[in-house]
Simulated scan of single mutants.
Amino acid sequence: MPEPHEDRRPLAERIAAEIRKAIMSGDWEPGRRVPTNEELRTQYETSNVTIQRALQILKDESFLKGKTGVGVFVREDRAQTISPAHYFAPSEPGQPYRWLSEATKRQQRSKYRMLEVGEVVPPVEVARALRLEGGGTAMFRSRIGFLDDLPAELVHSYYPIELARGTRLADRRLIPGGSPALLAELGYPTRSQEDAVAARPATTEEYEALEIPRDVPVLEVFRVVYSNNEKPIEVTLVVKPAHRFKMGYRIETP
């Protein structure tokens, strides 16, 4: 029989993990005052120093906020659920990209900032998804999205070069209505998409761009978009800070 897997993390990290889960699930409501150190010390049967370390971890990760002379409180904002299905269809003519319009519905300020555009040899998994021959290039578009002036997602998108060259996909400017609208205009309407979601530590690029606190992981969505005849027309990697977002999916049964 294999040995049972034991949590050997320091106790402060284990306590922080329990409190973090309570905050993410909503059991500890936004703005709630955290129990006193003495109450937590009694609950977890540990020292005051360990409790202080656990709370400092969560302060560093922006889950908790200390108010001098008052106490420690749960952050005011809940983890936000993002539903990819809301952005699936192209925007209506003259309307902004759905990521932006959906933010407006939630009464959030939103914007994108372009980081890089150009022809590149994509990563192996992207090349495989786009069905590129060895050494084939793709059009690369990188941008960062902000919600209420906070970095919310880092987006790397790749397009077949024969489809993108000479179009707005090769332009450094933002695309009115977003890429789904432009692709539809080019004769490649979106018919389906596949998402693979992973959680992992942030790279340096992601850590800096998304202002990741401490060791908070990121959520990565690897998305392949298909047009007519199952032709792959876009591969996008969306990376979001896991302490602020959840991914939401609704599946209809036949």
Rank of each mutant, 00 (worst) to 15 (best):
residue 66 G to D: 11
residue 71 G to H: 02
residue 78 R to S: 15
residue 77 D to T: 11
residue 54 A to E: 05
residue 60 D to V: 08
residue 79 A to L: 10
residue 82 I to K: 03
residue 77 D to F: 13
residue 72 V to S: 11
residue 89 A to Y: 13
residue 52 Q to P: 10
residue 67 K to V: 12
residue 65 K to I: 10
residue 60 D to M: 12
residue 90 P to H: 00
residue 74 V to P: 09
residue 78 R to L: 12
residue 67 K to E: 14
residue 78 R to D: 12
residue 63 F to G: 12
residue 54 A to W: 15
residue 72 V to E: 11
residue 73 F to V: 08
residue 82 I to S: 10
residue 69 G to H: 07
residue 52 Q to I: 06
residue 91 S to Q: 05
residue 56 Q to P: 04
residue 60 D to C: 06
residue 47 S to K: 02
residue 90 P to Q: 00
residue 48 N to L: 13
residue 85 A to L: 08
residue 72 V to I: 13
residue 77 D to E: 14
residue 73 F to H: 10
residue 47 S to R: 02
residue 82 I to E: 09
residue 91 S to K: 05
residue 51 I to K: 04
residue 63 F to I: 10
residue 69 G to P: 04
residue 86 H to F: 06
residue 86 H to M: 06
residue 76 E to M: 13
residue 67 K to C: 10
residue 63 F to S: 08
residue 64 L to Y: 04
residue 66 G to E: 06
residue 55 L to T: 02
residue 68 T to A: 09
residue 74 V to I: 14
residue 70 V to T: 15
residue 69 G to C: 01
residue 77 D to Y: 10
residue 54 A to T: 00
residue 66 G to W: 00
residue 50 T to S: 02
residue 80 Q to G: 05
residue 87 Y to W: 09
residue 70 V to Q: 15
residue 63 F to C: 05
residue 53 R to E: 05
